[in-house]
């Protein structure tokens, strides 16, 4: 008896004019699971993420959360709110993803006010709980985003997304704009949140070495198509598709041979 996936994507396709940005992508994520969608620019990974949260309308294919179709745009307030409680998103650029005029506390309270019928005391308690969960205190809560560092802002974005209590959280390159020492903090936080909250994660990333530490499953996209998928550990240890291998080889490290990678890349093109 297989468990119903929390997120199922079937034959997803998005065309811009003649160009197919995403072309027949399918995958599933089990409850509490974690999938990494990996690719370079132009692979369609960000377009896929935007279709998952409803910022982009698929040209074909379906997106199902817990078996409910959410492919076409929502009609009315009820369905809009229901959709929002399915999937939330954290964006790449922490400097652009918060309203500069809204305090940290306000940013977390807004979704609480929209989605839950709480009195003020309960709302404040929940807000403080969420901020505490992502490692932010009272001082940060009262501040405007411009007073915060990139890492702190990304924590706010996380708290704000989790406030809705989504079933799936999409992280679109959520750590790639951060410094390494801060990125690792956020990765630690994400691992912890996943363990305690049971929310399913979809990571969109270009960084394979990061994927290894945050995702159970991986889906490699190239030019809008899936070239390889499977358990992250297995795919990264023994890639089957030459493109996956190229991506892995391209990660810089000591004793790295960029000339050979360049030759492999040309052979593949």
């Amino acid at each position: 008896m297989t468990e119903q996936p929390v997120l199922a994507v079937e034959g997803l396709r998005k065309t811009f004019g003649d160009h197919a940005a995403v072309d027949g992508v399918s995958f599933t994520v089990p409850p509490g699971g974690s999938l990494a969608i990996v690719g370079e620019s132009g692979s369609g990974k960000t377009t896929t993420a935007r279709m998952l949260v409803g910022l982009e309308r698929p040209s074909a294919g379906r997106v199902l959360v817990c078996g409910t179709d959410r492919t076409s745009p929502p009609r009315g307030r009820r369905s809009r709110l229901a959709r929002a409680r399915d999937v939330q998103m954290v964006f790449q650029d922490p400097y652009l993803s918060l309203d500069p005029r809204v305090t940290v506390a306000g940013a977390v309270e807004e979704p609480l006010r929209l989605h839950f019928d709480l009195d003020q005391a309960a709302r404040h308690a929940r807000r403080d709980e969420l901020l505490d969960r992502v490692g932010l205190g009272e001082r940060e809560a009262a501040a405007l985003p411009r007073r915060l560092s990139g890492g702190q802002r990304q924590r706010v974005a996380l708290a704000r997304a989790l406030a809705v209590e989504p079933k799936v959280l999409v992280l679109d390159e959520a750590t790639s704009a951060l410094d390494v020492s801060i990125q690792a903090q956020i990765v630690e936080l994400l691992r912890e949140l996943r363990a305690t909250l049971g929310v399913a994660f979809v990571f969109v990333s270009h960084d394979l070495s990061l994927v290894r530490h945050v995702a159970d499953d991986v889906l490699v996209l190239r030019r809008g198509r899936a070239v390889e998928s499977g358990r992250a550990a297995a795919v990264l240890a023994a890639p089957e598709h030459p493109y996956t291998r190229l991506l892995l080889d391209s990660v810089p490290r000591r004793g790295w041979d960029p000339a050979r990678i360049a030759a492999d890349r040309r052979a593949l093109a």
């Binding site: 910022l55 929002a84 790449q92 650029d93 993803s97 005029r101 979704p111 929209l114 989605h115 704000r160």
Partner: peptide
């Protein structure tokens, strides 16, 4: 992204424009 995240949160276009886009 901050405007888009309000869309993802489920706010109506009206509210987003009036409360967030216009003031900014």
């Amino acid at each position: 992204p901050y405007i888009q995240s309000y869309r993802v949160q489920g706010w109506s276009g009206w509210t987003i424009c009036l409360r967030h886009l216009a003031p900014n």
